[in-house]
Each structure stands twice: as C-alpha cells, then as structure tokens.
C-alpha cells in the first residue's frame, strides 16, 4: 500500500459517502444520474466477485463491502425511497445503459489477460468504470445546474482515479510486478473523461462563480 493508493481509496470512499450523505440528509437526488449509480453498482459487483474467495486483507475486504453497500443503497434510495425518488429527473437522465455495457462486455471478451469468467468480468468492470460517469456528465450538461455537492462528488471521483494512476506509476518503479496495460489504459481513459469537467470545475472555483458546463 502506498500513499497514492491510500489517498485514492480515501478520495473514492469520500465521494460515495458525500453522495450518500447528500441524498440521506436533504432527501433529494436532484442532479444525480441514476444510470451512473446503477453502472457503478454493476462495476463493483463484477469487480469484487472474489470478495469471498480471495482474502487479501481486512482493509481490502472492508472497503469492498463499503463500496458495494454504498453503491446499492444509493440506487435503492433513488429508485425506492418515497421522498428521494420524487426528485429524480428521469426525463433528463435518459442515457441508455446498454450503449456502455454492451461495448464494454464485447471488449472484455476480446481484450483481456486471461479468458476466464472472473478475469473477463474483472476486465469488464475496468472498462465500464472508465465510462460509467458519462450519463452523469450528460445530465449535468443538460440540467446545467450543478449544486456544490454534485460538483464535489464528480470531482472526487475523477481525483481518485488520477491518484490511482500515480499509484500505478509508483508501483511500476518500486515493485517487481508490472501493472497490466489494460488497467493503465482504462484508468487513463477514465481520468481523461473527467478532464473537461476538471477544467470547468477549476475555472468556476477560481473565478468563484457557479459551475457551468458548456451545452
């Protein structure tokens, strides 16, 4: 465990907790894309298939349970909670899941390190995680109102993967193992997707004005 990875995990943890807290306290999911949250629940499910078979460390298992629990409870809140669901903007959040899920699945079947179920599922989760934020970014551009918490949530999500890239660079130089090129590519693509959001986030933060994404 290195500082980049710990910082990345904490940033990631913080992002899902910020979102869960926002939805739980103000009982609203305005500006949040249910599609993205469902994709993240799928990412964690396919990523952590080995949670009960391969024990790596207590930290690893606890964090996996937190990510699985928080992502599914966010989906539950937006879908089932009688108050929260009213603030869900389903007419705007129309990104089709299968536009992302199917290409990632096909890609994972053809481009992976080992053609086993677990390995293909793990690779699928990497590809899907890279693009899962798209429905959320589309929703932000459509609704054009980004409340602070949602902006912070997206920013933290982007920051976590950027920290992971630093972690991979660090491990590449300090440990005899190599980071799989698939992990690298998916991680870099994911971070680049946030790049334009980061740009506008910093602009709004610097000029101390409300965050506006160009249409």
């Amino acid at each position: 465990m290195n500082i980049f990875r710990l910082a990345g995990d904490m940033t990631h943890l913080f992002s899902v907790l910020v979102l869960l807290l926002k939805i739980h306290t103000i009982k609203s999911c305005a500006g949040i894309s249910l599609k993205t949250q469902e994709l993240y629940a799928l990412v964690f499910t396919t990523r952590y298939l080995d949670i009960f078979t391969d024990f790596i460390s207590l930290y690893n298992t606890v964090m996996k349970l937190i990510f699985l629990g928080s992502s599914f409870s966010i989906v539950w809140y937006i879908r089932r909670h009688k108050i929260v669901r009213r603030s869900y903007d389903k007419d705007q959040d129309t990104f089709r899941h299968y536009f992302l899920v199917i290409p990632c699945l096909v890609l994972a079947v053809f481009i992976n390190h080992k053609f086993t179920f677990k390995e293909v599922m793990w690779t699928f989760s990497l590809y899907l995680e890279a693009v899962a934020i798209l429905p959320q970014l589309v929703l932000l551009q459509r609704t054009r109102n980004i409340d602070n918490l949602t902006g912070q949530y997206v920013f933290l999500l982007g920051a976590y993967r950027a920290l992971y890239i630093l972690n991979w660079i660090y491990r590449h130089f300090t440990e005899p193992h190599y980071v799989h090129w698939i992990t690298w590519i998916a991680g870099v693509v994911q971070t680049l997707l946030y790049a334009d959001f980061f740009y506008y986030y910093f602009q709004s933060w610097k000029n101390n004005e409300k965050l506006q994404l160009p249409a």
């Binding site: 990875r5 990631h12 790596i56 690893n60 793990w122 440990e175 193992h177 799989h180 992990t183």
Partner: peptide, 10 residues
C-alpha cells in the same frame, strides 16, 4: 505478492 498486480487494489 501472490496476487497479480492490480488485483490487490480496489
């Protein structure tokens, strides 16, 4: 590490 590189990551 016995596990592959990024398999011990989240």
């Amino acid at each position: 590490a016995t596990t592959e590189s990024s398999k011990d990551e989240l």
